[in-house]
Write a protein that binds this DNA or RNA. Structure first.
Lengths: 337, 337
DNA sequence: TTGTATGCGTTATCAT
DNA sequence: ATGATAACGCATACAA
């Protein structure tokens, strides 16, 4: 079946293709009755403009790329929802790219982004290097990074929507100090290393201010099973810290389960908090304390920012206006007191 | 910055654009030394073919659409991984569409699929109606549905990769009958209604064969919190069934937690199984029995099937060869005996 | 207000 | 083996 083109519509409505083009683009110069005729023809033939041809003619694809790690679907679902919803509002299509562990996979993604001529890119943190951002920059592709705060770079046309994890950790540790708690651990999450770095930095700042040194940045294979096995073994010869920061649900739950199975009372013997919130933290006994991070909003704001960058909105001309920090709040549950 | 085009390369290498086109498409008619020259020019200028222009010239975008419900990221992550990995192998780009609850949202998705001129579509079950599939069919867009088995339809150029949930339920119920268990419930999962329908059908067939009637198809708001509240209340005046089928982790865990809190012993007083497996089922006490469903393979096989359909592979000419059933196995854990 | 002609960056069909 | 040229389907500057 040959697809209906603008020519077919033009013939049917007995006008030129330019006129058809005008009505589908809402030009107001076209007379009302011919507009009618054209629209009837479009309806009758079931014409749908070819986005590829439009893209070529306009050098604009109304498509944006989203790049995220393939391990993180489950955790970034809400951010994705925010992104998709706003993209839908602005009629942007989404090209979806995943990066895997393998060497230089991000290169391939960038290659296909460039070839595809997408209008903009959303990058999830922890997937790329500064070099890779620079490549995108060379091609003048607007991009926004969602997740954690970017380090200062020479790159200036990049948006950034983030939560201040450093502050989060800093404040919480200070509160712990006030309660006399100084035996504090941070469990590494290998899937979110940039966020880890910021949490660690926040903790270290608080320690330094207090005249202490932070030593318990703990790293082990952090799937649930590995964590569980490691910690089960660990607690045979060690006590848990007074307070433990974990990042993902699996890590928190592994800690909770192993602690309890080792005979420790939660939160009396060990308090813990899981940075990323989700429903699973409410399925344990006790429920795990966490933070309310505006994930959906992070996605929605990111996409909205990107659309503004795509139309060169005046309100985001300078660099600072593209750095958007979103708030968060602590949700105390059963693993802290 | 003007993007480098094939003209720029042609000028640089002092050949015509036709020759450049030939070398990037690996035509073997071009002489070795000019090929060299062209490749050097490409390298020097950093030329990347414009996929949009290629798409227009070839009527082929090397892009496939994936359509899934926005509620299901977290659960279909592995299927997505399978899809993406195979797509990457075949150099297909992915357009990602989500459907939400709102009325006729799928219409919009279809509209954008048609306009985008993607080469094919992967549909997750429970997102669309037969009518909507027919629209895609009219446009000759190859599609494969992944998840559960499609009902017989007039549509014949559609692939289908699925697990036989009906058989799964049928077999398990017969095994329960053998053990003398007949008090069996199935908890509805509103996010996966087509799979529910098949499970229910399997259970009903087993019951009918036994001369019994299946009555306990249980439906309530099935988020974790709602389930939890509902069941907590329910168990104040009811006993649990001898055996309960749940579909998602939240439902299983809600049941497990409320049962235990109501004083019932698992699995002695109530056995349960969760159809979809994930790590959270191993975080509860006892661990929840489940099925090993080849999710990654479902994605990988689906995408591979689609690529075959896109090149009109002979091996999938007839309808049956596009219906691919994948196996599964039962994973007994602590909630069954 | 409408039509004509050109360009967007490729591929493919002709010639040469 | 290479080059000129016509598509592909649309938007738009320019003419009428």
């Amino acid at each position: 079946m040959k697809r209906i083109t603008i020519y077919d519509v033009a013939k049917e409505a007995d006008v030129s293709l330019a006129t058809v083009s005008r009505v589908i683009n809402d030009s107001n110069v076209v007379r009302e009755d011919t507009k009618q005729r054209v629209q009837e023809a479009i309806e009758k033939l079931g014409y749908k403009p070819n986005a590829i041809a439009q893209g070529l003619a306009l050098s604009k694809t109304t498509t944006v790329s989203i790049v995220m790690s393939e391990k993180l679907f489950a955790y970034n679902g809400k951010i994705l929802n925010g992104l998709m919803d706003v993209a839908k509002i602005y009629n942007y299509n989404i090209m979806f790219h995943t990066t895997s562990k393998g060497i230089s996979k991000m290169q391939d993604v960038i290659e296909s982004i460039i070839k595809s001529h997408v209008d903009g890119v959303i990058l999830f943190n922890d997937n790329f290097s500064e070099d890779e951002m620079e490549v995108l920059q060379e091609y003048q592709i607007p991009m926004v990074v969602v997740g954690s705060q970017l380090a200062e770079t020479g790159i200036d046309n990049v948006g950034n929507v983030y939560v201040n994890f450093e502050q989060m950790a800093y404040d919480m540790v200070n509160q712990l100090f006030d309660k006399g708690i100084t035996d504090i651990s941070l469990v590494e999450d290998k899937l979110n290393l940039s966020m880890m770095a910021q949490l660690r930095s926040g903790i270290e700042k608080a320690f330094t201010k207090k005249g202490l040194e932070f030593k318990k940045y703990i790293s082990y294979d952090d799937t649930y099973k590995s964590s569980y096995n490691f910690l089960t073994d660990y607690f045979k010869s060690h006590k848990p810290s007074q307070f433990v920061f974990t990042f993902r649900d699996s890590q928190a739950i592994a800690l909770l389960n192993t602690c309890q199975e080792a005979g420790y009372k939660i939160p009396d013997d060990c308090q813990m908090v899981c940075i990323l919130n989700n429903k699973y933290l409410s399925m344990t006994r006790p429920n795990i304390s966490t933070f309310n991070i505006p994930e959906y909003d992070m996605g929605a704001v990111s996409m909205r920012l990107l659309t503004k960058m795509l139309v060169d909105d005046d309100s985001i001309k300078n660099k600072d206006s593209k750095q958007i920090e979103l708030g968060y709040s602590f949700i105390p549950k059963g693993t802290t007191n």
